[in-house]
Design a binder for these strands. Structure first.
Lengths: 122, 122
DNA sequence: AATATTTTTGACTTTTTAGTCAAAAAAAGA
DNA sequence: TCTTTTTTTGACTAAAAAGTCAAAAATATT
């Protein structure tokens, strides 16, 4: 009973993913997320609890789908969150169990270089 | 003429490197750097100009020596600075010219995984 | 229609951030 | 020793950050 959410949570998570992928975690401000989602801070906080919660929602959703953009969020998680957030560590750790060291390191290395904007000679 | 610096700039750069390596760029605050170097903000700013300047000093110094810790700073540069700082982009871009795609992506991938704290099975 | 419950709203608070600056202190050079 | 130049000091500023909350609005349920 009571009001239903005015927005589509799935769509919002998609928008949050795009922001984190483009800017990384620490460099993303709540204003960035407010702007990208079209929601107000209160709505974001009542839905996700915290900035970390927003990232976790974005990451979890992405891992379920296992798309190319998952790798970007995994990289951000590993470089910016895994050592600060127990929950993110758990999520990534569990995901990693189903991967091979070779595949993961190779893919992450490629993404770092690509995202850096450094010209790939090859 | 005039006073000489009370501290050893080379030593200070070493301390700055350690902080950035441990926390990354955005997650490092000036207070962290003040604490690690034992200097005051004014001294850091008069020497390096800005937080970005402090990172550039740390990165440049590290690239000259080409040690294992260089890779950590290169990773941070690529994931957090290359798209925001023209100077860092130039430094990394030039460095990259003397490397091979294979070596770079492989090494970066390994470091991401190691730094993430995720258990390496292998 | 009345009520209970939820979401929305956005201004507000608190904390942290990078960066500044004028005065004091130190010391190099004459 | 005196002057000039530099560094040190640390309180201060301004901007940006994440997060809060009470009132208003909306609506599902009875």
């Amino acid at each position: 009973m009571g009001r239903n959410k005015k927005f589509d949570t799935v769509e919002t998570i998609g928008q949050i993913q795009q922001v984190f992928i483009q800017k990384g975690y620490n460099a993303t401000s709540l204003d960035d997320l407010v702007q990208a989602t079209g929601l107000l801070r209160g709505s974001l906080y009542s839905t996700f609890g915290s900035k970390e919660g927003m990232f976790i929602a974005a990451l979890s959703d992405s891992l379920e789908k296992e798309s190319e953009e998952s790798w970007h969020l995994i990289l951000i998680a590993m470089t910016e969150l895994t050592n600060q957030s127990k929950r993110v560590f758990e999520i990534i750790n569990q995901w990693y169990h189903h991967q091979s060291y070779q595949t993961v390191t190779e893919k992450l290395g490629q993404i770092v270089l690509k995202e850096s904007g450094i010209t790939e000679v090859k």
